Simulated scan of single mutants.
Amino acid sequence: MPQLVLPLPFVLLLVFTTSVFGTESAEVEIIDVKMISDTAPHSAFTDLIRFQDNWFCVFREGKAHVSRDGALQVLKSHDGNVWQSVARLTSPDADLRDAKITITPTGQLMLCGAAALHQPAEARHQSMIWYSDNGTAWSDAIAIGPPDYWIWRISWHDGKAYGVGYHTIEPRETQLFVSGDGHRFEKLGEPFSVDGFSNEASLIFHTDGTALCVVRRDGTPDDAQLGKSVPPYTDWKWQSLGQYIGGPALKQMPDGRHIIAGRRKTGPAKTVLWQLDPTTAKLSELAVLPSGGDTSYPGLVLHDDILWMSYYSSHEGKTRIYLAKIKLPTSK
Score class of each variant (00 low, 15 high):
275 Q>G: 08
73 Q>M: 13
31 I>E: 12
180 G>Y: 15
162 Y>H: 07
132 S>L: 04
52 Q>W: 03
145 G>H: 08
168 T>P: 03
257 R>S: 09
19 S>N: 13
219 G>Q: 06
279 T>R: 02
68 R>L: 13
311 Y>Q: 04
158 D>S: 15
233 Y>R: 00
239 Q>Y: 08
287 A>H: 12
259 I>R: 01
304 D>G: 02
214 V>H: 01
276 L>G: 15
48 L>T: 04
267 G>A: 02
83 W>M: 05
7 P>E: 09
117 L>M: 15
241 L>R: 00
219 G>P: 08
136 T>P: 05
53 D>W: 08
185 F>V: 05
226 L>R: 00
53 D>S: 12
309 M>K: 13
24 E>N: 12
332 K>N: 14
166 Y>I: 01
68 R>H: 15
242 G>H: 03
183 H>C: 09
303 H>E: 12
91 S>N: 09
225 Q>Y: 06
147 P>M: 00
197 F>A: 09
118 H>R: 04
242 G>Q: 02
203 L>C: 04
113 G>C: 01
332 K>C: 15
106 T>C: 05
318 K>Y: 01
163 G>P: 11
170 E>G: 14
171 P>H: 02
177 F>Y: 11
25 S>V: 08
220 T>R: 07
119 Q>L: 10
36 I>W: 06
4 L>Y: 13
30 I>M: 03
329 P>T: 10
192 F>D: 03
175 Q>H: 05
92 P>S: 14
87 A>P: 08
278 P>V: 02
112 C>V: 06
138 W>R: 13
110 M>L: 15
94 A>D: 11
100 K>H: 15
180 G>D: 14
43 S>G: 08
41 P>I: 02
259 I>D: 08
